[in-house]
Computed example of a mutant assay.
Amino acid sequence: MAFRFTHLLAGVFLASAANAQMPPPTVGVIELKTQAVPRTIVEPGRAIASAQVEIRPRVEGTVTEIGYQAGRPVETGDVLFRIDPSTYEADLRAAEADLAAARASVQEAEAALQRSEQLLGTGTSQAQVDTARSTLEQARATLQSATVTRDLARTDLDRTTVTSPITGVAGFANVSVGDLVAANQADALATVTQLDPIDVEIWAPSARILSLIDDVSSDRVEIAESITATLTLETGRTFDADGQMVATGQNVSETTGSRATRFRFENPRHVLLPGMFVRSEVMLGSARAILVPQSATERAPTGELTAWVVVDGAAEQRSLNEIGTHEHGWIVTDGVAAGELLAVDGLANLTTGIEVQTVPVMLDEDGVVRDLEDADAPGDTEAE
C-alpha cells in the first residue's frame, strides 16, 4: 500500500509540473489601421410613383370608345377615351355662326361710322356720328364675346377626346362604352402611372440623422457630392440600378420618429412597382475609421459591442463604438486605436489579463481567417 501511495503522489506532482509549464494559448491577430471607409446606412423603403394622374372627364356625355389596353405603356397625348361629340359639334357650329354674324355687324358699323364722319356738317349732326361710333363699339364687344364663346365650344369639343397627360402605364378602366360620365366627376375613368423612372422613399430615424450631423461637424464623416442608394428586393435580389437622391423631407413623422428621403431609380423593365417594400443601402460618403471584422466581436444583451486586443502579450477586452458596417466589418470610431493587435482567431478561452502568444494572420475577401503562409502560397485557396 505504501508503495502504491508513493507512486500516486509522484504522478500528481509530475502533472502539476506539466501544467505549470504549459505554453500560453495562441491567438491569431491583425494590426488595426485607420482607413477611409464608405459611410452607409441601411434603412427600409417603399417605392412610389414619380408621377401618377387620375383621368377624369371635363365634359358630360356618353363614353363611345376606350382607346387603350390596361397595363400597356401610353405616351403623352395618346387617346384613352372618347365621349360622344355630337352635342359639342352642334354647339361649335352655332358659336361659329354667331361669330360670323358678329363680324358682319362690325363691318356694317364701321361703314356707317365712316359715312357719318364724311357727311358731318352736310346733313349729319355730331350726335349721329357719336351714335354710329357707339354702335361700332357695341358690335366689336359682341364680336369679342362671340369669339370667346366659339373658343369655349371648340375646347369642349376637344375635351370629348380624353388623352394621357403623361407617359406611363394606364390602369384598368373604371367605365365601359355606353356609360354616362359627368364633367369633373369624383370617380376617375382610369389612372396613369409613371414607372420609369420610379421613386423610392427611404425613412431614417431622426436620432441617426442627428448622429450623422455630429459626425460631419466633427470631420469624422465627409459627405459625398452625389448621394446614391442601392436596393435589395423582397426576394433578396439586388436591384440592378443605383438611385440618385432627389429631395429630403422637412418633417419628422409623429408616429415613427423618422425623416423621409426620396431617391429616383431607372426602372425600364418595371421591376419596381408603387407600394413595393425594399431594403436600401444609402452611400453617404466616407469616414476615417478603423474596420473591425464582425467575426472578431461579440454583442452583449445590452447591445454593447466588444472585441479582444493584445497589449504587451496579454488579452484585453474593449468596448467599441461603431457607426455602421462595411463588407464584413464594423466601422469603429472609438474603443481601439491604429497599430493595436486585434485578436481574430482563438478567442474561445480568452479572459482579461491572460498571457497569449500572437500569430499574424489575415482575412480573405469573405472575412475568413487565413494564415499568412497560405495567403502567400501561389494557387492555394484553402485554409489548413
Results as ranks from 00 to 15, higher is better:
residue 137 E to P: 06
residue 138 Q to E: 14
residue 140 R to S: 11
residue 141 A to R: 14
residue 142 T to Y: 09
residue 142 T to R: 15
residue 142 T to K: 15
residue 145 S to G: 13
residue 146 A to F: 08
residue 148 V to Y: 14
residue 149 T to R: 11
residue 149 T to C: 01
residue 150 R to T: 04
residue 151 D to F: 03
residue 151 D to K: 06
residue 152 L to G: 01
residue 153 A to C: 02
residue 154 R to P: 01
residue 154 R to H: 11
residue 154 R to Q: 14
residue 155 T to Q: 10
residue 155 T to F: 07
residue 157 L to N: 12
residue 157 L to T: 11
residue 160 T to A: 12
residue 160 T to P: 11
residue 161 T to M: 12
residue 162 V to T: 07
residue 162 V to A: 12
residue 163 T to E: 10
residue 163 T to V: 15
residue 164 S to F: 08
residue 165 P to N: 10
residue 165 P to Y: 11
residue 166 I to L: 13
residue 166 I to Y: 11
residue 167 T to W: 11
residue 168 G to W: 09
residue 168 G to P: 07
residue 169 V to P: 06
residue 169 V to R: 08
residue 170 A to E: 05
residue 170 A to H: 08
residue 171 G to K: 06
residue 172 F to K: 12
residue 172 F to Q: 13
residue 174 N to P: 01
residue 175 V to Q: 12
residue 175 V to C: 07
residue 176 S to N: 15
residue 177 V to D: 15
residue 177 V to N: 15
residue 179 D to M: 07
residue 179 D to A: 12
residue 180 L to K: 06
residue 180 L to Q: 08
residue 181 V to P: 03
residue 181 V to T: 09
residue 182 A to M: 05
residue 182 A to K: 07
residue 182 A to T: 07
residue 183 A to W: 05
residue 184 N to A: 11
residue 186 A to I: 00
residue 187 D to N: 07
residue 187 D to C: 00
residue 188 A to Q: 01
residue 190 A to S: 05
residue 190 A to N: 02
residue 190 A to D: 05
residue 191 T to A: 00
residue 192 V to P: 02
residue 192 V to A: 02
residue 193 T to R: 02
residue 193 T to D: 01
residue 194 Q to L: 06
residue 194 Q to R: 14
residue 195 L to R: 06
residue 196 D to W: 06
residue 196 D to G: 09
residue 196 D to R: 10
residue 197 P to F: 04
residue 198 I to H: 02
residue 198 I to T: 11
residue 198 I to A: 03
residue 198 I to E: 06
residue 199 D to W: 12
residue 199 D to T: 04
residue 201 E to T: 02
residue 201 E to W: 00
residue 201 E to C: 00
residue 203 W to V: 01
residue 205 P to A: 03
residue 205 P to S: 05
residue 207 A to S: 14
residue 207 A to M: 05
residue 208 R to A: 06
residue 209 I to H: 03
residue 209 I to R: 09
residue 210 L to W: 12
residue 210 L to I: 05
residue 211 S to C: 01
residue 211 S to W: 09
residue 211 S to L: 12
residue 212 L to G: 04
residue 212 L to W: 14
residue 213 I to N: 11
residue 214 D to Q: 15
residue 214 D to Y: 10
residue 215 D to L: 13
residue 216 V to P: 09
residue 218 S to A: 14
residue 218 S to G: 04
residue 218 S to V: 11
residue 219 D to E: 14
residue 219 D to C: 02
residue 219 D to W: 07
residue 219 D to G: 07
residue 220 R to F: 08
residue 220 R to G: 10
residue 220 R to C: 04
residue 221 V to W: 04
residue 221 V to T: 11
residue 222 E to Y: 00
residue 222 E to F: 04
residue 223 I to R: 13
residue 223 I to S: 10
residue 224 A to H: 06
residue 224 A to T: 08
residue 224 A to L: 05
residue 224 A to S: 14
residue 226 S to H: 13
residue 226 S to M: 10
residue 226 S to F: 12
residue 228 T to W: 07
residue 228 T to Q: 13
residue 228 T to C: 05
